[in-house]
Simulated assay, not measured.
Amino acid sequence: MTSELAVKVDRVREVLLARDLSAVILTSKESLAWLLGGARVTVPTNGDPVLSARVTEHELTLYVYANEVDRLREEELYPLGELDIRSHPWHEPLPGVAPMEGAAPEASIAAELRAARAGLLPVELERYRTLGHDVAAAVTAVASELRPTDSERHAAAALAHAIVETGAEPIVLLAAGRERLQLRHPLPTNGHLGSRAMLVVGARRNGLIANLTRFVGDAADGDSDERLLAVEADAFAATRVGRKLSKVLADIAASYPAHGFDDDEWLRHHQGGPTGYAGRDPRATPAASDRVVDGQAFAWNPSAPGTKVEDTVLVAAGEIEVLTVDPAWPTADVGGIRRPIARAYS
């Protein structure tokens, strides 16, 4: 067992001890990818995992569908050392999906497991920094080739190609031309990009997810881009270790009217939240009681009509480190942090 796996198994065991449980079965792709060092645990990108993991005080046992054992052992799990892998019939529910006597289901300790995977290890941070750089550079390369007459689907296809070439999986691909910028989740169509276009990417590699949004073409009408960057700066300032996500969200909500947006602008789209092994882990809501952890990744995504800002950042030692950064993309200084602005068509 590698040191990374050992640390993570110990974190799960600490949860078991705190909850007075003898065993738990991990079944979610987020927890399994985290535990197993970023192993690809699904076949359809957002499908159900092909294995489950039972953790007790002294044992770690993996139950893997029989038709996936060889691939996982040879291509995904080999860096982790010797593991107890049990072949499971492909036509029967995995342990944990089907109740397993003596083991608590993952859902019963979901909040504790989110906290366990929130603080990223140094090896995870290195993976994340490399992923963030690669994905940001891929988006820049695609944006540099786009033209106003290109369709949204052409832009999304080019992004998918570039992301897959980095070894990542595109799990979110959105594109909006000038005529559809009012939509917060613009699935691509045959419409033209026009004079201003939004590109949104979520890409997963080694289990970790990089999220970012970029604009190509003109700046937004008026000064809404600049005012929204000020909202994001307030979000960064509010994301302090130990604070509840609900409190951070309340500060973000108050920031909108402070910078000239409608009081209820924050209600028109979710504002993001912690990320890592899930796109949002969890999404920040007024009821979210999770607390900010040192060494945790976040993807806040403030938005307003026609504009949005989003990057994956690390919150550590009271500082914000932008992970999805490409020096070739134009930026503006906002509170000492370089933030992306619209990139003119080439």
Score class of each variant (00 low, 15 high):
4 E>F: 04
5 L>R: 11
16 L>P: 02
16 L>E: 06
19 R>D: 05
21 L>M: 09
23 A>W: 03
23 A>V: 00
27 T>R: 11
35 L>G: 01
35 L>M: 10
37 G>Y: 02
39 A>H: 14
39 A>P: 02
43 V>K: 11
43 V>R: 15
50 V>W: 14
51 L>C: 03
53 A>D: 07
57 E>I: 08
71 R>Y: 15
76 E>V: 15
84 D>H: 14
87 S>V: 09
89 P>V: 14
90 W>Y: 14
92 E>D: 08
93 P>F: 13
94 L>N: 03
100 M>L: 15
107 A>M: 10
109 I>T: 02
121 L>P: 07
125 L>W: 05
128 Y>G: 13
140 T>V: 05
150 D>C: 15
158 A>I: 01
159 L>R: 04
162 A>W: 01
164 V>Y: 03
168 A>M: 09
171 I>Q: 11
171 I>H: 00
186 P>E: 03
188 P>V: 12
198 M>Y: 08
206 N>C: 11
208 L>G: 05
211 N>E: 14
215 F>R: 10
216 V>Q: 03
225 D>P: 13
234 D>S: 09
235 A>T: 09
242 G>T: 07
242 G>D: 04
247 K>A: 15
254 A>S: 07
257 P>S: 13
257 P>A: 12
260 G>A: 12
261 F>T: 07
262 D>L: 15
263 D>I: 07
264 D>K: 13
267 L>H: 02
275 T>Y: 11
276 G>W: 13
277 Y>A: 03
281 D>P: 00
281 D>C: 06
283 R>V: 13
285 T>Q: 11
293 V>R: 14
296 Q>L: 09
305 P>M: 10
313 V>W: 00
314 L>I: 10
316 A>R: 13
317 A>C: 00
318 G>E: 00
334 V>H: 01
340 P>I: 04
346 S>L: 11
